[in-house]
Design a protein around this nucleic acid. Structure first.
Lengths: 306, 306
DNA sequence: CGAACATTTTGTCTAGGACAAACGAGAATG
DNA sequence: CATTCTCGTTTGTCCTAGACAAAATGTTCG
């Protein structure tokens, strides 16, 4: 009677690595050091993770991406972890009636509805305010919704897809600018392209000529592309998932690969951007600042090449 | 004088894993078994892979994705590997003047030009023929171009980005169909979304109501979404990179998760699709067949629910 | 020619040890 | 009071080497 074993789905270590983003090595050493996770063993003696533990691991990973350390988190209960995560978003999310509407649409996987909702906000606010005041907080709200278990990954994707369509459409309807020429990309470690799209929208809006290479572009290719396209600015996006130390290293290397005249702008929610930036790299802490930066660049350009 | 060591960039094992898609375990065991790769060791005794070997590994991986086995490939020279890869694409690629034009544009990273070129083809051929006769062979040509070292990853991405924009625009300008309701997605192992977009284009064209969840959707979320959206068909895309055995297993599980009335269509360049399909799953070997399948579905629907 | 079996080939898993890089607290300094 | 520096602690990644199942191939038999 004791220890009732729910035969819930068990995940192999490779699946857990894929779903959580924690490497096999890390999973094994956490088990050794902290006693968590504590997978059962299958007939072959291999680790088999109950869904519940995988869920907690996902949460842990997301919190670590925002700067927490595992030693402190591992001991906590699921509820405590969720509470930790809420603090972040709650402060900035405007809990207006609008957010509630999104929620209802997402619950129903209503793609068209979400798209309509987004488009409406776009029309009402205009592109700049739409991105800065609407999309950014909504992104956070959706992330938090997932963290609290109110949203599935699929529902997150419904939102992401719809937003992508709306942004791309908005970008497409903008007149192609001329200068500065901006090359957009993320590095190979980074698979999230939404930040890139948001940046492209604002940059285009401010008259930049955007060339997006999309996601996962090797550093050297990026440098080559910058040379070939005669880019004035190389803009990179770093989500929270990007290993913070590697971000700094990569930016350093990119700086050495590009001619001095080419600016580097780095944006996103990554922790590395809150630290002191190395010389010759502009850390864009807040996407709202993009407009000002472009203006500043144009000013400088007038000075240097009259 | 002998053994001149070019101080070319050395990659750590984690970077090689990321860039090639071969796991650390696999890299180490190939070294043990086949003697390749043969990385040098850095000051810490850790593997450091010369760029040349990484390049060969990338090629190996791509060939393995098309069905070759490593034991046979490892001994071959780079040129021989390239020759192996060419056979595939060369047969199907129409080496018309059009392809050459793309080449020139890609060499210059000319996103706008590529987009124009694609749009032109779209207008001339119409969406169906554009996808089937133009995009599919171009995808292969671009893949082969990368394999022969004529194209960088960044240039591949330029093409991908442009194609994405064009397809999305085409889809957007189509009237939203009503029936059947199709849910599109890829599983968590699969990061490539282009196939999905191509499928969405053709499905929409044939009057389907498409709901795309995008890339990397967990199986259970997908099933839940199918129920919630009352999807008639769940369409999955499997690129060559997807581990073939896992594809079969995943399809099997999905089949058991979905009600019988919900069809499963699986497409893409994955090797698993050329094997015998399990009952209740439609393997779409060629994207050109999508139109016929939709027609067939509509026929059947009339019969079952008059 | 296809089915059943044997034999290779291949990738993933296991274990524990080692170590550098990142972090955080406290001391010392401006 | 803020900054830099030092030093212990925390943490992830890498190492070796062995084991084994699943997939692919080859072989034999009906």
């Amino acid at each position: 009677m004791s220890g009732e074993q729910e035969a819930g789905p068990l995940a192999a270590i490779a699946a857990v690595e894929r779903d959580t983003g924690l490497s096999k090595d890390t999973l094994r050493i956490w088990e050794r050091r902290y006693g968590f996770p504590q997978p059962v063993r299958d007939a072959l003696g291999e680790r088999a993770y109950p869904a519940e533990q995988v869920e907690k691991l996902r949460l842990l990973k997301r919190l670590m991406d925002t700067g927490h350390r595992p030693g402190k988190l591992v001991g906590l209960e699921l509820a405590q972890l969720q509470a930790l995560g809420q603090g972040l978003a709650q402060a900035s999310t405007p809990r207006t009636g609008v957010a509630a509407q999104y929620w209802k649409l997402l619950q129903a996987h209503d793609v068209a509805g979400i798209r309509r909702q987004l488009n409406q906000a776009l029309v009402v606010l205009g592109l700049e305010r739409f991105v800065v005041e609407h999309v950014v907080p909504m992104n956070e709200a959706v992330g938090e919704g997932w963290m609290r278990g109110e949203l599935t990954v699929a529902q997150e994707h419904v939102y992401t897809e719809a937003l992508q369509v709306v942004l791309r459409q908005a970008i497409g309807s903008l007149p192609g600018g001329a200068s500065p020429r901006v090359l957009l990309a993320t590095l190979p470690q980074e698979g999230h392209g939404l930040g890139l799209l948001m940046a492209e929208a604002l940059l285009s809006l401010h008259g930049c000529h955007c060339i997006s290479l999309g996601v996962k572009v090797p550093l050297h290719d990026l440098a080559a592309a910058a040379a070939m396209t005669e880019a004035d600015i190389v803009a990179l996006s770093f989500s929270a998932v990007f290993p913070a130390n590697q971000a700094a290293a990569a930016l350093h290397e990119l700086r050495s690969l590009l001619p001095e005249g080419t600016a580097i702008w780095a944006g996103g929610s990554n922790a590395a951007l809150n630290r002191r930036m190395l010389a010759g790299v502009e850390g864009v802490r807040d996407i709202a600042l993009v407009g000002g930066l472009v203006a500043r660049w144009k000013q400088a350009a007038i000075g240097s090449a009259p």
